[in-house]
Design a protein around this nucleic acid. Structure first.
Lengths: 133, 133, 133, 133
DNA sequence: GTGGTCTAGACCACT
DNA sequence: GTGGTCTAGACCACG
C-alpha cells in the first residue's frame, strides 16, 4: 500500500481512526487495495502518518470487525479475500437506507435535483473499479 | 407537528441534538413539516422527549444556522419558507460527494450492486414530497 | 414619514425595537427625516408595521434617551431640531472606537483590504446627506 | 496567549461568549495571537476568567464555525493558519455595509465629521498588524 | 488531558 | 409566553 493513499486532516470533525478506516474502505472498493494485499503494520503506518499507534490499532480493529480485513498473527493485516461476499445483513441495509435518506433530504433542500444526484452517483460509480460481488 | 415524527435513541452514538436535527430535516424534506409550519417550543419538545431544554435549543440553533428554520421572536421557531432556495455552495457539494462516495464504496463491498442502489434511491425519492425550488 | 422607510425582519437576530430605532436613526442621518419632522404616533406605527405598541414605545423611548428625538406631550414625537449638535461624549467615542475596531478586525480577517474599506466608507458617506454639525 | 488579552464585563449586555469571541478575533487581527498559536484549553480559560466551561466552549465553537480557529483533537484549539484567506462572501459583505452605514450615521449625528472618522479608521489600522492574505 | 455532550435548574431579554 | 444565556457538575470519546 502506497501511503499516498491516506491523507488525514488533523482538524477534521471526523476522528482520525475513522478517517483512516474510511480511506482504507475506499481503497478496497476502488481496487487500489487488492484482495489479499498486505497492509502496513500498525507501527509502520502510525509512524508514516505521524499519529499514535493506538489510533491505527483502533482503525484496524474496526475494519476487522466489519470484515473488510483479516488479521493473521503470522502475516499481519490483509485485505479480505472476497470483497462483497458477505451478504448484506438487514441491520446494515437499514442503516444504509437511513443514511442515504438523510443525505438525499439534505441535498434536495439545498436545491440538488434528483437528476443531478443520479449523475453524481454515476460519476462515482464510473471512477470506482467496483469488484463484482 | 405530531410528535410521533421524532424518536430518539438514547444509546446511539449520534448526539441527541443531532438526531433531533436530522429528523426535523427529514420531516421538512418529506413534507411532513410544511414551510412556515410552527415547530413545538423548546420546552414542549424537551418535555415530550424527556430531554433537557438545552439539547433542544442546540438542535434549533443548528437548524437555524443552516437556514432550515427561522426563529421569530414573537411566535417561536418555524420551518423556513423557501426550501431548496439556497443554492448549494462548493464546500457543501464537495462534502456531499465525499460522503456519497464512501457510502457507495461500503454498499458495493457489502454486495449491493449499482442497480440495487439506484432502486433504493428511487424509492427514497418517491416517498419524499420534494418541494420545487 | 412615509412608512416605506421602515422594513422589519421578524426573524432577525436584532430585536424589533432595535431595528426600528436603527432605521429611524438612518432616516435622520440621510435627511429622509428632517429636523422637527413629526413622527407617527406609537399606535399608528405599531399598526402599520403589525407589531406590538410596546415595541414601538421602547424604540421611541430609546431614541429620546439618545436625544435623537424629542417627545412633546402636545404634538407627539418629533425629530430633534439640531442634529449633530450634542457634542460626542467620551463614553460614546470609546464605544464607537471599540465597535469600529472590531468591525475592521473582522473585515481584515475576511480579506477586505484597507483600500476597499475606505472606498466603502466613501460610498456610504456620498449617499448620505450628512447634515453639517 | 497572555490572559491579559481578555477582559470580560459581567454586566455588559453583550453575552460573555460573544465578548470572548470578539476579543479573540481582535487578538488575531492585531497579531497578538499569531497564526497556529495554541489557545488555552477550555478549562484553563474558564478558570482564569471565572466563568463556566460551557461558556468558553460556546465561544470556541463559534470561532471554529467562523474559521477563525481550528480544533485539533490532539492539542486543542489553535489560531487558523491563513488569516484573511477565506474570501468574503456576499452575505458578509452586505452585513458589513449595513453595520458600517449605521455606525457612520450615528457618528455623524453625534457631530463626528467624515475627516475625524477617517482619522479614527487610520489609527485603528495602524495599530493592527494586518496579515497579508 | 483534550473538547464534546448532557442534565437540572436558574435568570434575563423580547414581545 | 417565547428563545437565549449561564452555572455547576457529570460523563464520554478521542488520542
Amino acid at each position: 500500500m502506497s501511503t499516498t493513499l491516506i491523507s488525514l486532516k488533523l482538524d477534521s470533525d471526523i476522528p482520525l481512526y475513522e478517517q483512516l478506516r474510511n480511506q482504507i474502505v475506499l481503497g478496497i472498493a476502488t481496487g487500489k487495495l487488492q484482495p489479499q494485499e498486505k497492509l502496513p503494520t500498525v507501527r509502520q503506518l502510525a509512524e508514516e502518518l505521524g499519529i499514535n499507534t493506538m489510533t491505527v490499532n483502533k482503525a484496524y480493529a474496526l475494519l476487522k470487525q466489519e470484515h473488510y480485513i483479516v488479521i493473521d498473527r503470522r502475516h499481519g493485516a490483509k485485505v479480505h479475500a472476497h470483497p462483497g461476499k458477505a451478504a448484506i445483513d438487514e441491520e446494515a441495509a437499514d442503516q444504509l437506507e437511513q443514511k442515504l435518506e438523510l443525505m438525499i433530504a439534505e441535498a434536495s433542500l439545498q436545491g440538488v435535483a434528483a437528476d443531478t444526484f443520479y449523475n453524481l452517483c454515476a460519476r462515482i460509480y464510473s471512477r470506482m473499479n467496483i469488484q463484482k460481488a
